[in-house]
């Protein structure tokens, strides 16, 4: 079987003095030294790793949790600063915005994307309550309490907090959209909460 026969291993002139007397099924081995740059990489990774371990485990390196707490603190401060700048619900701004063409469009679009899955296309409710009847669970169906419910959510009942997700304009638009369906009494989910006359 000619294919299985071992051909003479091709050894370069410069390698002749490096050939070891090993022979494994015709395989020869050279005795090249370890490449310098390879030894350097190995040395560098070890000299990085050992102090790294001792710093984080046995010295005063910060724990992962401490790192998180610090970053969360910064985020909370940023959020508080933004809140302070906004100054809560702005009735004037809302009145000026929600009836405009832009406000109506933005409201309808945002509703479709974020709210419809639970409150249905005509706001008659499925997973979430019917928003077209006279019954309200959280607050009295007035603009301010709708704003609060949207922004902060009622997480225990499954209503997400949208304040972190929607812009102020989007929320105003959605409130306008909800108000335009108020008391239309579209048949859907049964009344929940208190009747507000």
């Amino acid at each position: 079987m000619s294919n299985e026969e071992n051909q003479e291993v091709n050894i370069l002139e410069s390698e002749k003095n490096l050939v070891l007397d090993h022979d494994y099924d015709g395989i020869k081995e050279l005795d090249h030294p370890l490449p310098f740059w390879w030894v350097m990489i190995f040395g560098l990774t070890i000299s990085f790793s050992v102090p790294y371990y001792f710093y984080y485990t046995h010295a005063d390196g910060p724990s992962i949790r401490a790192g998180l707490n610090e970053k969360m603190h910064e985020i909370k401060e940023k959020q508080a600063a933004w809140e302070a700048k906004q100054g809560g619900f702005n009735t004037e701004k809302f009145n000026a915005f929600f009836k405009t063409e832009k406000g109506k469009k933005l409201g309808a679009k945002t509703y479709r994307r974020k709210c419809m899955a639970c409150h249905a296309d005509q706001l008659q409710g499925t997973i979430g309550p019917n928003l077209t009847d006279a019954y309200w669970i959280h607050g009295k169906g007035d603009i301010a309490s709708i704003y609060k419910t949207i922004k902060e959510g009622v997480t225990a009942k499954g209503m997400p907090a949208w304040g972190a997700v929607l812009t102020e304009e989007q929320m105003y638009g959605v409130i306008g959209h909800v108000m335009s369906f108020k008391n239309k009494n579209i048949p859907g989910k049964e009344p929940q909460g208190e009747k507000i006359e």
Partner: peptide, 23 residues
């Protein structure tokens, strides 16, 4: 096994194979 066989060349460094195997 197959690379030196297929190309018919000696293995570059025996020493490297020892060090990198154990490490």
């Amino acid at each position: 096994y197959y690379v030196p066989k297929a190309i018919n060349r000696p293995v570059y460094s025996y020493r490297l194979s020892i060090i990198h195997f154990w490490s």
